[in-house]
Amino acid sequence: MTEWLRSATTSLASSGWLPETFAYAFMVRAMIACLILAPLLGVLSPLVVTRGLAFFSSAIGHSALTGLALAILLGESLDGAGAGVLCFCLLVSVAMTYVRHRSDLPSDTVIGVFVAFTLGLGICLLVAVTQRFNIHQVEALLFGSVVTVTESDLLFLLGVAVMTVLVIGPMFNGLFLSSVDPELAAARRINVARNDYFFLMMLTAVIVASAKVIGALMVEALVIVPAAIARNVAGSLRAYCVWSCVFACVGTQGGLLLGSFVPVPTGAAIVLVLAGLFGVTFVVSMATAAAARARGRAREAAGRK
């Protein structure tokens, strides 16, 4: 697969269809990473938005940085810290869910407390870490970098993707039903609390795995923006999920392409493309709605005559 895609992009690059950076192996690896990651985040995105978890994803992104600093302080190398980051983020995710289920406070307040805590801890730890590492190496996790994607990263990403499909697939309908009405879902023998834990742990794993490719700060955007774009154009739940996947793929590949023309971080380029798509679909949906209202008024006026 890697070889085939690489020969394809190399020939496209040499014939001038693609920028010449696509002839390099790291660019092909970045493309493959995005092709795994985009549909995955695209399917999760509507669930995140519907369940009001935008801020939750942001908290996990922040705690990835804290987890990295912690792993390095405990003696891991920069490249081998992935498992440590994942463990720390899962811990934060489970703790947050536990408190959210039991506290009387609104969900975003509970998450805000955790964001404050992990950020504070992260900053303290980073100061200690920068005495041993160049801060730019740590920055790669924040802003993402295509050159740092390795074959083992791809395998990790693929593993997380397969796990997510296996775990979330059977509970997909139940997750939507419980966000429409948790008690109705419970009456239909759906274990709402268990589903919530599983979903949030898988979401955490996906965010951590993607952070290496497009950066922790940018994953948050990729978890939220595809659904926001899709909501502008979708007339049903199914279209919502499908469009979200499509826009996530278009946004990530478009961002890679943009990043090869202009010297900007890949993650930032991807987010800019996605934001642009949101702007366009928003204007189109406003125009469509206005046109529908005008048609309705015209029909009314014709009816009166």
Binding site: V43, V49, T50, G169, P170, F172, N173, F176, L177, S179, V180, D181, L184, R188, R231, A234, G235, S236, L237, R238, A239, Y240, C241, V242
Partner: peptide, 23 residues
């Protein structure tokens, strides 16, 4: 239910009764 979720009546009935993911 808010307008953030564009679920149709047919989809709601499917989601409530079926295990197979909607998509």
């Amino acid at each position: 239910l808010g307008s953030a979720l564009p679920i149709t009546v047919a989809e709601f009935l499917f989601v409530a009764a079926q295990r197979r993911p909607l998509w």
